[in-house]
Amino acid sequence: MSVITVSILILGITGIIAAVVLYIVAKKFHVYENPDIARIEEILPGANCGACGFSGCHAFAKACAEAKSLEDLQCPGAGQEGMEQIAAIRGLTAGTLTRRVAIVGCNGACAYRHEATHYDGVRSCAIEAGYYGGETPCVYGCLGCGDCVSVCPHDAIAMDDETHLPVVDFSKCVGCGKCADACPHNVIEIATLSDEHPLVYVACRNKDKGGIAIKECDVSCIGCGKCKRACPVDNAVTVSEFLAHIDPALCIGCEKCVEECPRHSIHSLTV
């Protein structure tokens, strides 16, 4: 027998043995998975952002594949359209998507809030906040290192070069809340958008007394209460710790407080 024949035989036999072993292993350890899961997962964005409340896209797909009703299951990343597709796969009807977005509760741009110190450490809000209140006298506002930007799975938030504040791209934001969790000063919050009226929110976190807050930032809330007086709805606006709060459940979006606020710290948003 020539060397070539022997080589072919040895390689051939090795190949056959390997194939048989692989086949047996594949059969023995086969796990059945609902094929719907894979089909649903293809519709999902795959960002594992957690906006749906599940640990990731696979977990959500599994929940969709097993659910009896899709009313309470929402993936803002896939959108209404995506949820309809999922509903079609399952032969169910999709619920109406609640639109949530991240809003930035600090308006203290560089021009309004002057630096008192220069932070020379790691560009990380978490580390900066672990040490002190930030470069400006306001110890409540945005630190400007962009932790929110780096955690966003949808690339929907960016730092503005001029204001050094984060800007949300509402066409991409799905309101998953990763940025809100990452913000050590809780400047970012997740708000629910309404179809009927604009979203009105307080773009300030300053809890210092008015006299101090006024010095710290040109657009700080000083707790003057004009917004509360202007509001036509009882208790929709409250002031505590020298800071106004708007109850999103009661707000009717009339924007009267936005007009009244002498500090321009109440904003309204229409997406």
Binding site: G121, V122, S124, A126, I127, G130
Partner: peptide
């Protein structure tokens, strides 16, 4: 490298 900055963060 700001090694201690990150260790302090980890500790907190």
């Amino acid at each position: 490298r700001p090694i201690l900055d990150f260790i302090k963060l980890a500790k907190s």
